[in-house]
């Protein structure tokens, strides 16, 4: 290891064996809490939150649309950061995280775009407009698909990890574009519901179920990510002693 100024858990994270065991312990918790919050948020948002005075009940799509859009962007940042760590410290686990996240991020981007289109039809009268927010989200989906295509096209795992990391880092420029697209350009899309510096514009009984759904989906997709990561660890470390010990008995 190059230097010792990084905390100990950082080096533990670098160990596939340690990651396999810690994710094994975390998975039941993510499943239980994530599942519970998901059911609460779903029932709360669909049946109990008041309807919007302008949009009526179609506004309830927000409880799926906003969390998936937030997660699609967070997962992209995770993928780019993991890729960068893999490039800089040659950390195998970071490469595996980046690879595991990509298909989930793509699924989230598809879901955000699809729920947005379905919401757009009754609200704007159109499934799709070539507007800055929608277009930059579509670019996000294409970036995910590009990373996935590179991963499957390149035979060598280390070369694939390097190329996808570079692509993911270049594509990172799209994230602030998505965020500020509603402010920089004239758009049909409404501004952000949650802002760090201000109170939400909607009443608490509307944004609280949304917050629950955001946390629930972080946990559920975190769970999916750990499941993928564990498969990746087993496959790549199949020649390691601990894997043989784990599966041999």
């Amino acid at each position: 290891m190059a230097s010792s100024w990084l905390p100990r858990w950082f080096y533990q994270l670098a160990s596939p064996r340690w990651c396999y065991s810690i994710t094994g312990k975390l998975i039941p918790w993510f499943a239980a809490i994530g599942g519970l919050l998901f059911v609460i948020g779903l029932v709360w948002g669909l049946a109990f939150a008041p309807s919007d005075y302008q949009q009526g009940n179609s506004f309830r799509i927000i409880y799926l649309h906003v969390p998936t859009a937030i997660l699609a962007q967070s997962f992209y940042m995770l993928m780019a950061i993991a890729g960068a760590i893999g490039l800089i410290w040659k950390m195998k686990v970071a490469d595996m995280v980046a690879k595991s996240v990509a298909p989930l991020g793509a699924a989230l981007a598809v879901l955000a775009l699809a729920t947005g289109a379905i919401w757009g039809k009754p609200t704007w009268g159109s499934w799709w407009v070539w507007d800055a927010r929608l277009t930059s989200m579509l670019v996000l989906l294409f970036l995910y698909l590009g990373v996935m295509a590179l991963n499957s096209a390149i035979e060598s795992e280390t070369t694939a990890a390097k190329s996808t990391a570079v692509l993911a880092l270049v594509g990172l420029v799209n994230i602030p574009i998505i965020k500020y697209s509603v402010e920089w350009w004239n758009t049909l899309h409404q501004p952000a519901t949650f802002k760090i510096t201000e109170k939400p514009a909607m009443p608490a009984e509307m944004w609280m179920p949304l917050l629950v759904m955001v946390i629930a989906l972080y946990l559920v997709f975190g769970l999916a990510m750990m499941l993928r990561l564990r498969n990746e660890i087993l496959t790549r470390e199949r020649r390691a002693g601990w894997v043989k010990e784990l599966l041999g008995s």
């Binding site: 669909l46 009526g56 179609s58 799926l64 879901l111 499941l227």
Partner: peptide
Amino acid sequence: MGGHGLYVWLSYGLGLLTIALCL
């Protein structure tokens, strides 16, 4: 859903299907 049932349930149907597949 006040006449918007198709849109709301289509969204949530897609969402549940995608989440189920991801797990």
